[in-house]
């Protein structure tokens, strides 16, 4: 593995892990349910995306022959489609349960 690839991999791995950590930090730190929702849906998704890209590059470089390893894209794609859906459902459940929020809650219609 060339030093440039190794540097790129290290950067991607660290950035991914940092975003994952920041997402969970937001979950632990914020005060109401609706603001907590933002950390995991955005930061964590991008963090795992970075890690999967790193994994894809790693197995493409070190794998036998010159075969590309692209199946990590599948997990990334899946997470990018499902994370907003679960966030939307969770927000809906929170509104349904009338959870307290820092922002003025919306009126019912």
């Amino acid at each position: 593995m060339s030093p440039a690839v190794e540097a790129l991999l290290s950067f991607l791995v660290l950035a991914g892990a940092a975003f994952t950590f920041i997402g969970s930090l937001g979950l632990a730190r914020f005060r109401d349910f609706y603001t907590r929702l933002h950390g995991p849906t955005k930061a964590t998704t991008l963090g795992v995306g970075c890690l999967l890209v790193a994994s894809s590059i790693y197995f493409s470089v070190t794998g036998e022959g010159d075969s590309l390893s692209l199946h990590e894209i599948l997990v990334t794609l899946f997470l990018f489609i499902t994370a907003p859906v679960s966030a939307h459902l969770l927000a809906k459940a929170g509104l349904h349960r009338r959870l307290p929020s820092v922002a003025p809650p919306p009126r019912d219609d």
């Binding site: 609706y34 603001t35 929702l37 933002h38 849906t41 955005k42 998704t45 990018f80 489609i81 994370a83 907003p84 859906v85 966030a87 939307h88 927000a91 809906k92 929170g94 509104l95 922002a103 919306p106 219609d109």
Partner: peptide, 28 residues
Amino acid sequence: LANTICLTPGTVSARLSADRRALLVHAL
């Protein structure tokens, strides 16, 4: 649109009105 605004500008879509004319969004 709901998926996109969940992932992009600091917002999460929270509820689609029954007549599908308005989307409630929570901004951070």
